[in-house]
Amino acid sequence: MNTVNEMSLSFPSKSCNEAFARSAVSAFIMNLDPTINELSDIKTAVSEAVTNCIVHGYRRVGGTIYIKGKITDTGKVIIKIRDKGCGIEDVSKAMEPLYTTAPEEERAGLGFAVMQSFCDKVRVKSKVGSGTTVTLEKTIAPHNA
């Protein structure tokens, strides 16, 4: 499995950058010729992960969000979304559907559930005080035009 393309970007944790991040990632995977549904799945998962960085990782303080993207020769898309924020104390608890620590902001507690449902694989690495990295993987099926 060889890497055929890579990208990285960083931007401040402003909520207007949620749209920028998902658009940038969808532009990056565009030459895999994804279906509308595949594109929408990845955009949604990226939007959830970036929103988590803003709402939770950098809650109240702000900081930089880093995204790294990779495409392999098997059509696998790997997107890493990282913050250097507060980190998650209990990752498995945070991943439970409907669990949220920000109900006052009307967060539904579905972020990780959506990422898991819309991607093939989701990995979360987090350390309290130093930040969280979410890795999303999804293979874009080759299809003949």
Partner: peptide
């Protein structure tokens, strides 16, 4: 044209 789980929060709210 697009929504993430924020749309669910919006409806529940």
């Amino acid at each position: 044209s697009f929504m993430d789980s924020s749309g669910i929060g919006l409806v529940m709210g």
